Amino acid sequence: MESFMHFWEHIESWQRMAILLGGMVFFWVLEGYYPMFAFSFKRYKHAGVNLLFLLSTVILNIVLGAITIKVCDWVTTHHIGLLNWLGLPLWANILLGLFFMDFFGQYAPHYAMHKIKWMWKFHMIHHSDTKVDVTTGTRHHPGEWVFREASTIIGVLVIGLPIGMYFLYRSMAAIFTHFNHANIRVPLWLDKPISWILVSPNMHKVHHHFKRPYTDTNYANIFSLWDRIFGTFAYEDPRNLQYGLDVLDGSTDENLRYQLRLPFDNTIKTDY
């Protein structure tokens, strides 16, 4: 276990990028063979628009991630946070670290973005995609990433997350994001048991249904237990779902200029 964490403590930037892109390519190929929905669209154009959002995310990760890494180093040096106080075995620290970082890095800011009007307008870009596939997981307005990383930093302080666990969490979060957004066909007999503890593809697709109340469910990224604990879990056969948002014109989902302006367009209804 020590050698496992040693890898994450010293992981190179190119290795982290390989995990991010490798997972995306893997599910991109897989959804070509086992698609959940046979969308009628230009797959490469759709991916190109979403990957432009990924570029902004990578740039922000370099800036904000550097701050988060400094905070990880600080809590380790000064023995701040739960993991530094509880004195648990390494394997337990890893599980607790991943579990609670899923709350601070994903569930909490995600919930807030659905409940606070001005934050929701940034998050609407992610939900505006009418053809959800693996590239949709990268589709976030740059402003949204600021909310997420700020909450992540709070989590690092509360948990006392060391640098290695931060990199491990980021990689796990990326893999689950690809897995959950991928347009892959997962039979209900397999998907449902996965969703008892972890976020499954069919479970997350419910979150991308075009109208409430399903839109306001399933906020977690790795552990479905957070949604079960807070009563935001929902499950539905994906064949009964429709992607997008009922307050937006679905034909604008690949209009990059329109999407970037969405948070600042006062004519857009937010349904609040």
Rank of each mutant, 00 (worst) to 15 (best):
H123T: 12
F39W: 14
W196K: 09
L161F: 04
H141M: 01
A18E: 13
P109V: 06
V199W: 03
K70M: 08
I229L: 14
K115V: 09
F264E: 08
H209R: 08
S195L: 00
L86R: 10
I222M: 06
N221L: 03
T76W: 07
A150C: 14
T270W: 07
F100Q: 00
S3A: 11
S224H: 03
K70E: 09
P162A: 13
S195Y: 04
M119N: 07
F210E: 06
L51M: 15
T215P: 11
E236S: 07
T57M: 05
A112H: 00
F264S: 06
H10P: 04
K117E: 10
I197A: 02
N221F: 07
V156G: 09
D129N: 13
H209P: 07
I69G: 13
R148K: 14
S3L: 07
F122N: 08
Y34Q: 09
H110R: 12
N50P: 09
H127Y: 11
P213D: 15
M1V: 15
M17S: 15
M172Q: 11
G160K: 04
L83V: 03
S251A: 14
K131C: 02
K121Y: 00
A220H: 08
W14S: 11
F264T: 13
G155H: 10
L248K: 10
W91R: 06
I197M: 02
G137P: 09
D216W: 10
N240I: 06
V58R: 05
W91N: 09
N84T: 00
M1W: 15
K205Y: 04
M17G: 12
D227A: 00
L256E: 11
A66S: 15
L88M: 05
S13Y: 02
H127L: 04
W8D: 08
S128C: 12
Q15D: 01
L157M: 13
L54Q: 13
A234F: 00
I268R: 10
F122H: 11
W226Y: 03
V71E: 04
F100D: 06
L88V: 10
L161Q: 11
F39T: 02
L30S: 05
R228W: 07
W85V: 09
Y243L: 01
N50K: 03
Y111R: 13
T57G: 13
T232C: 00
W74E: 04
V63Y: 06
T232D: 02
G160P: 05
T177K: 08
P142V: 14
I116A: 14
Y243R: 08
H46S: 06
N50F: 05
I222D: 02
L256G: 08
K45P: 06
A92G: 09
K42L: 02
M119S: 12
E144Q: 15
V75C: 07
T215K: 14
F147P: 00
L241F: 03
E12W: 08
V206P: 00
E254N: 15
M172K: 05
F223C: 02
D265M: 10
W28H: 06
L256M: 15
